[in-house]
């Protein structure tokens, strides 16, 4: 069974080795490149530049609702002059096979409409019985408020093609994202993203968040390539946030995830 899981895992590794941007962005089909949240740390770090308060968040994701395969993430942001600092951790895999990624980010604003960020990551890969390997990668992103209700975002990760050793069949993807978000009213945000992974087909995604009432939001999204449907909801209670998401793929089934956040 472990072998089988490992096999499935290896097949889907290219995609899975990406950062998991938390249930809010996931339920909006991973269209966070032009959105702002603590979870921007995992999709477009420029999205934390406007943070005025320190915050942290943790998330847990079950992949394909399997018993063992999971992703765990922890994030922390801290506002500084004209920007914010961020630290992120993410662990993915199961007992016999896992990756750990640690990142630091600096994001800052340039005027009221523009923000940019730089991010550095340290990756570790461990396979039981085979040992371990490590690698470095970098990422950069920008966001620009085009008009009162339209924001565009662009992001590139691992442009230096940092990777584990030659003998290891695991890659850190080189990914480019370009997105736009549209705030239709205080209740509705729609976001679209074009994503290009190196040596892969282009993906188009669209997500929507609807704040039914001020403490409850529902979210949904669709990505084209591969075709996936996403859904979820979020709750706010004072300084606490709880977000839940599920990803549905025609063949592999559902992947649920849950996150807790706190803003100081």
């Amino acid at each position: 069974m472990k072998f089988l899981i490992g096999l499935i895992f290896l097949i889907s590794l290219k995609v899975q080795a990406q950062l998991s941007p938390g249930p809010r962005f996931t339920s909006m089909a991973l269209t966070g490149v032009s959105l702002q949240d603590i979870w921007s740390l995992q999709q477009n770090q420029a999205g934390i530049a406007n943070s005025k308060k320190a915050a942290f968040a943790i998330a847990y994701e079950k992949t394909f609702a399997d018993q063992e395969l999971s992703t765990q993430s922890a994030l922390l942001i801290y506002p500084v002059k004209a920007g914010a600092l961020g630290i992120s951790f993410q662990k993915y895999g199961f007992s016999a096979y896992n990756t750990l990624q640690t990142g630091i980010t600096y994001a800052r604003t340039f005027g009221p409409n523009f923000s940019a960020a730089l991010n550095f990551n340290y990756h570790q890969l461990r396979i039981l019985g085979y040992g371990s390997s490590s690698a470095f990668s970098a990422a950069a992103g920008i966001q620009y408020l085009l008009s009162e209700n339209i924001r565009i975002g662009a992001h590139i990760s691992n442009p230096g093609k940092g990777n584990f050793g030659k003998n290891i069949n695991a890659t850190i993807p080189v990914q480019m994202q370009l997105g736009v978000s549209y705030i239709s009213s205080s209740k509705v945000i729609i976001a679209g993203t074009i994503e290009q992974l190196l040596h892969s087909e282009m993906d188009l995604k669209m997500g929507l968040e609807y704040n039914l009432i001020n403490w409850f939001a529902i979210r949904a999204g669709v990505s084209a390539n591969p075709f996936k449907q996403y859904g979820g909801f979020g709750l706010n209670y004072r300084k606490f946030k709880l977000d839940v998401a599920a990803t549905s793929q025609p063949i592999t089934g559902y992947s649920p995830q849950l996150a807790l956040g706190y803003e100081f």
Partner: peptide
């Protein structure tokens, strides 16, 4: 199957319609 559609009319000049349908 499950169908989801979206219709956005940001102003009187522009309209965006999109849908996704998953079927078995």
């Amino acid at each position: 199957g499950f169908y989801s559609g979206l219709l956005i009319k940001p102003n009187s000049k522009l309209e965006l319609a999109a849908y996704a349908d998953l079927f078995k």
